[in-house]
Amino acid sequence: MLRDYQPADADAIVRVALAAFAEFEQHYSDWLLFTAHVAKMPELSKTGEIIVAEDGGRIVGAVAYVGPQAPKPAFFDPSWPIIRMLVVDPATRGKGIGRQLTEECLRRAERDQSSVIALHTTPIMTVALPMYLRMGFAKVRDAPDILGVPYAVYVKSLG
């Protein structure tokens, strides 16, 4: 079940986010700094909409949808809505939760009458990146590395 984030969800989404990124520890040059940023995921609710996925009353995934014109990193076109921090609990992967969360972001971009939606990711994310490509996202440019890990911007046309 997908629903909108509530402040009481903060600890649970941080737990899921840290668990989701744990497998990538060896790739980042400063893991403590990286996880400090991951743990700030609830703050995305200030500029965007966090969507949570629940299974049996337990939060198993989350994503932030940041609408057009909302503040976002400079490597994105300011008019684009973006998907940030898609995280799924490793124990519940393979159930389509990441796809459901992404599709909800696409619905919100269409609600906002956007012609495109964007995200940034990295080739080390060997589950997420192929899913995005299957869903019609295409690389448009490189983004700044994050602690030694290469990232790129991907865009999907809507409508």
Rank of each mutant, 00 (worst) to 15 (best):
H27E: 05
L32Q: 13
V38R: 06
E25W: 01
V14S: 12
A12P: 06
V38P: 09
L33I: 05
Q6N: 01
D4Y: 09
Y28E: 05
A12Q: 09
D9T: 09
R15N: 10
A10V: 04
E23A: 13
V14L: 07
F34C: 02
Q6T: 13
Q6P: 01
E25C: 11
A8W: 04
A39L: 07
D4K: 14
E25Y: 04
H37S: 10
A22D: 14
T35M: 12
Y28N: 00
W31Q: 05
F21W: 15
E23H: 10
D4W: 08
Y5N: 14
V38W: 02
H27F: 11
D9H: 09
A17T: 09
F24A: 06
L18S: 06
Y28W: 07
L2Y: 01
H27N: 13
A22N: 06
S29N: 03
S29Y: 00
Y28D: 00
Q26I: 05
F34R: 11
A39Y: 01
L18W: 03
P7Y: 14
Y5P: 08
D9N: 09
A19Y: 07
Q26H: 13
V16A: 10
R3H: 02
A10E: 12
R15E: 06
P7K: 14
D30M: 09
A22S: 12
T35K: 14
Q6R: 15
A39I: 05
Q26S: 14
Q26P: 00
F21P: 00
E25M: 07
A17H: 05
E25N: 11
V14A: 08
S29M: 01
L2W: 01
Y5L: 05
D9S: 03
V38G: 11
A8L: 12
A39E: 02
Y28L: 04
Q26R: 14
W31G: 02
L18D: 02
V38T: 12
A39T: 07
A12Y: 02
I13K: 04
A20E: 04
V16R: 10
A8N: 11
I13F: 09
T35Y: 01
P7H: 14
Y28T: 00
A22H: 10
D11S: 14
A22C: 04
A17F: 08
A8Y: 07
V16I: 12
R15Y: 08
A19E: 07
R15G: 03
D9W: 07
A8E: 15
E23I: 08
F24N: 09
A10M: 06
A36C: 04
